[in-house]
């Protein structure tokens, strides 16, 4: 999508880097420093799978980010498009529990299309009982465009609630999001207790500072991340493979 620079300039005035209160940190000093002290509530954050096949990891990362932001008295509002459930599997409540999220305080909306997902997310931001909105969307860059993301961002700022947009079947493109993450799975360390949620997370857009890449492990018992700088060197370099995403872009 092409965005005239004048529009970009006009938007940047509204959405300065000061937006949103600083929420809890993600557990790594370097990372939290880059985020300006911590992950921001009252803002839009985007999560993309780094390559096809990383959808489950991206879902998990989006979920635990939302969990990290969530006031435990409030509800997690998960909007998912029907097609995504067919393609990536539906949300499994027992799996939520295993990741340290209380399934009894998760409300889901099954949206049939992209516009419905946007509308439901906006509706969720308008509710004081919702502590975080997770919008799981499939494709449709023409619907999830700069204007739509800006509306979500403004609604998030007004409500003080974090919106995490989890995009499948779509390449990152210009948006008003505060941060954008590309998520791949990371290989478990050898040992008995393998299979803990382990993400190879690249912060590729950040309104508050630099970008970077971390191996982040989610600890469901304490609801915190642990970063493993030592494992980063061992991880294969990854960039979103244009060739791999090409088919999706054409289909979308």
């Amino acid at each position: 999508m092409i965005v005239p620079s004048t529009i970009k300039a006009r938007f940047s005035g509204f959405l300065g880097p000061s937006s949103g209160p600083v929420g809890p940190g993600l557990g790594d000093r370097e990372l939290d420093g880059k985020l300006g002290g911590g992950f921001r509530t009252g803002a839009l954050h985007e999560v993309f799978p780094a390559a096809p096949g990383d959808e489950a990891a991206a879902s998990g990362f989006a979920l635990v980010l939302a969990r990290r932001m969530l006031d435990p008295r409030k509800w997690l509002f998960w909007v998912r498009q029907d097609f995504s459930a067919l393609e990536n599997g539906d949300i499994h409540a027992a799996g939520l529990l295993e990741l340290g999220v209380d399934p009894g305080r998760v409300l889901t909306v099954h949206a049939s299309d992209a516009l419905g997902a946007l509308r439901a997310s906006a509706e969720g931001l308008d509710c004081k009982g919702v502590g975080a909105v997770l919008m799981e969307a499939w494709g449709k860059p023409n619907v999830f465009d700069l204007v739509a993301s800006r509306r979500l961002m403004l609604a998030a700022q007004q409500s003080g609630i974090a919106v995490i947009a989890l995009h499948f079947g779509m390449l990152p493109h210009p948006s008003a999001a505060e941060t954008r993450w590309l998520i791949a799975t990371a290989v478990s360390p050898s040992g008995e207790n393998w299979g803990r949620p382990l993400f190879d997370a690249s912060l590729v857009r950040n309104r508050h500072g630099g970008c970077g890449r971390w191996i982040m492990e989610w600890d469901p018992d304490n609801a915190i991340f642990q970063t493993h700088p030592e494992r980063l060197a061992a991880a294969p370099p990854h960039r979103p493979s244009e060739a791999a995403m090409e088919g999706i872009r054409q289909a979308g």
């Binding site: 509002f77 409540a93 399934p103 998760v106 889901t108 509706e123 004081k128 009982g129």
Partner: peptide, 30 residues
Amino acid sequence: DSGAYDDEVVALIDRLAARFGGHRVAVFMP
């Protein structure tokens, strides 16, 4: 579940159900 914000969430559920249909707004039950 009883909680401080449940009235707001119930109102949200009704609004969403009016727009998308009651079967599309779900909670999980063990």
